[in-house]
Design a protein around this nucleic acid. Structure first.
Lengths: 210, 210
DNA sequence: CGCTAATCTAGAACAAGTTTCAGACTGGGT
DNA sequence: ACCCAGTCTGAAACTTGTTCTAGATTAGCG
């Protein structure tokens, strides 16, 4: 793997690269970005992390390798962006059908297990995204943070709070998030069964009720 | 990165490679293994994951590249083995000075924060080991499992149980472990402060007391 | 000691992530 | 219509993990 530590110079005479903040992309750029993310998800769907090869993604998206790197400065960035994309879809889906349980803890557990089943449908894709997420170094902080905020939003939504969350609840949510990621990883690497993940999720959700 | 998916053939006409189970290593082999782990920890100490380059490890350990790969079939195997090594030392240290608190939850939190401070002393080393641990795929299951068992043992020790742990306690311990790993990662990638990690640890430890 | 299988070494070769570069292309402003 | 800055392309180069090979070395054994 190339210099993972060397960072792309912000291209002296060059404007900010696409993907940076609210930089309105051209129609065609928007489209390219979408094609890239689609190709990534498709490749990840077969074969997981290793099957996402930058050259293949580029070719499959009909884009030059250099362009791919302009949009996503590394494989990890690419996969984290893919996760963000997928999470947004999931969030939308979940909004349409909120959890049915009464108890907040149960609602969160139900929601997370739903998310988990979504992962089960595409275990390779899940593998690619989650591995990238936890492998990410500081240079991907911002993007990982975005994913984290999304996850937090999903959990808070599931809790169905009336008022703003308290500090205790926020730390409980963080711990739930930790557990969710880590449990996912142990399942993906075949070290825990689905039943065990379910138990862990339910266990940690008890923190919500104090 | 090379073929992470292609696996080494078990070397038809060759006995099991060193590192396999209870395969008594020669004096010199034991020594080589130790030199490799030392070199790894040293390199990881500066620079973290990226600074651990297989050629450098080999050279620094005074061993041929092929030999390094015979002892540890991949960079991830190598770093997970390093983590196992370090954890064993930590466990020994902790045994000598058990936590002082009364409450089991507090004892565990205290112990984990102690471990955390050990990590703070060598953040780059921690980075390398933890990243490897969560990046590990199925081919490293066994080794990762060993690390997991060690961690579990440390936590159970800290709890200072009189009898064997109950099922609920075991799942609480698993959740604590999840939180521990994940919180460590967010800290290492600069997305959480030490104070936040402390809060998260203390929060999750409340699960012990039901 | 002398043999044989396993192990070790040096080094080349290969794979995939990343960088770089020269030239073609595009969009907007004049 | 023309020009400029910024983009995109295609291809080669470079880095580092991993594999392979041919020839030394070593460990155990008769």
């Amino acid at each position: 793997m190339g210099h993972m530590t060397t960072h792309r110079t912000p291209s002296a005479g060059t404007a900010a690269p696409p993907g940076t903040a609210a930089m309105s992309l051209t129609e065609r750029q928007e489209e390219r970005r979408r094609r890239i993310l689609q190709a990534t998800a498709r490749l990840a769907g077969r074969g997981g992390y290793d099957a996402v090869q930058m050259r293949e993604v580029a070719e499959s998206a009909g884009v030059a390798l250099g362009t791919l790197y302009r949009y996503f400065p590394s494989k990890v960035h690419l996969l984290v962006a893919t996760m963000q994309d997928q999470l947004e879809q999931l969030h939308a889906t979940l909004r349409k059908r909120p959890p049915t349980e009464e108890d907040p803890a149960a609602r969160v557990a139900q929601t997370l297990m739903r998310a988990f089943r979504a992962m089960q449908r595409e275990p390779h894709l899940a593998d690619a995204m989650v591995r990238a997420l936890t492998f990410a170094d500081r240079s991907v902080s911002a993007e990982v943070d975005a994913v984290s905020r999304l996850t937090t939003a999903i959990i808070l939504d599931a809790m169905g709070l009336t008022g703003p969350p308290g500090a205790e609840q926020l730390s409980a949510v963080r711990v739930i998030e930790h557990t969710w990621h880590s449990a996912l990883i142990t399942w993906l690497s075949g070290r825990a069964s689905i039943a065990q993940v379910k138990i862990d999720i339910e266990t940690v959700c008890r923190l919500i009720t104090r």
